[in-house]
Computed example of a mutant assay.
Amino acid sequence: MRISLREVRDGDLPVFFQQMNDAVAVEMAAFTAEDPADREHFATHWRRVRNDPRVVARTVVGHTEDGAEVVVGNAAVFGGPEEREITYWIGREHWGHGLATRALRALLALVPDRPLYGRVATDNVASVRVMEKCGFVLSHREKGYANARGTEIEEAVFRLDT
Score class of each variant (00 low, 15 high):
Met1Arg: 10
Arg2Thr: 07
Ile3Ser: 09
Ser4Tyr: 11
Arg6Ile: 09
Glu7Lys: 09
Gly11Lys: 12
Gly11Glu: 15
Val15Trp: 12
Phe16Lys: 14
Met20Ile: 07
Met20Ser: 12
Met20Val: 11
Asn21His: 10
Ala23Gln: 14
Ala23His: 11
Val24Trp: 09
Glu27Pro: 03
Glu27Lys: 13
Met28Val: 08
Ala29Ser: 14
Ala30Met: 12
Thr32Arg: 13
Thr32Lys: 10
Pro36Arg: 08
Asp38Glu: 11
Phe42Ser: 08
Arg48Thr: 08
Asn51Gln: 08
Pro53Ala: 02
Pro53Phe: 03
Pro53Asn: 02
Arg54Ala: 07
Val56Cys: 04
Ala57His: 07
Arg58Thr: 00
Val61Gly: 02
Glu65Met: 03
Val70Tyr: 04
Gly73Tyr: 06
Gly73Ser: 12
Asn74Met: 10
Asn74Glu: 14
Asn74Val: 04
Val77Met: 08
Val77Ile: 13
Val77Asp: 12
Val77Lys: 14
Phe78Trp: 15
Phe78Lys: 13
Gly79Ile: 05
Gly80Tyr: 07
Gly80Ala: 12
Arg84Thr: 15
Glu85Ala: 15
Glu85His: 06
Thr87Ala: 15
Thr87Arg: 08
Ile90Pro: 10
Gly91Ala: 11
Arg92Ile: 00
Glu93Tyr: 01
His94Asp: 12
His94Phe: 15
His94Ile: 11
His94Arg: 14
His94Gln: 15
Trp95Gly: 09
Gly96Pro: 10
Leu99Arg: 08
Ala100Leu: 05
Arg102Val: 05
Arg102His: 12
Ala103Ser: 09
Ala103His: 02
Ala103Asn: 04
Leu104Val: 15
Ala106Cys: 00
Ala106Phe: 00
Ala106Ser: 05
Leu110Gln: 10
Asp113Lys: 06
Tyr117Glu: 01
Asn124Ala: 01
Asn124Lys: 02
Ala126Phe: 03
Ala126Asp: 04
Ala126Thr: 04
Arg129Gly: 09
Val130His: 05
Lys133Trp: 00
Lys133Cys: 01
Cys134Asp: 14
Gly135Ala: 03
Phe136Tyr: 01
Val137Tyr: 01
Val137Arg: 11
Leu138Ile: 08
Ser139Pro: 00
Arg141Ala: 10
Glu142Asn: 10
Lys143Phe: 08
Ala146Leu: 00
Ala146Val: 00
Gly150Glu: 06
Gly150Ala: 03
Thr151Glu: 15
Glu152Met: 00
Asp161Ile: 08
Thr162Lys: 07
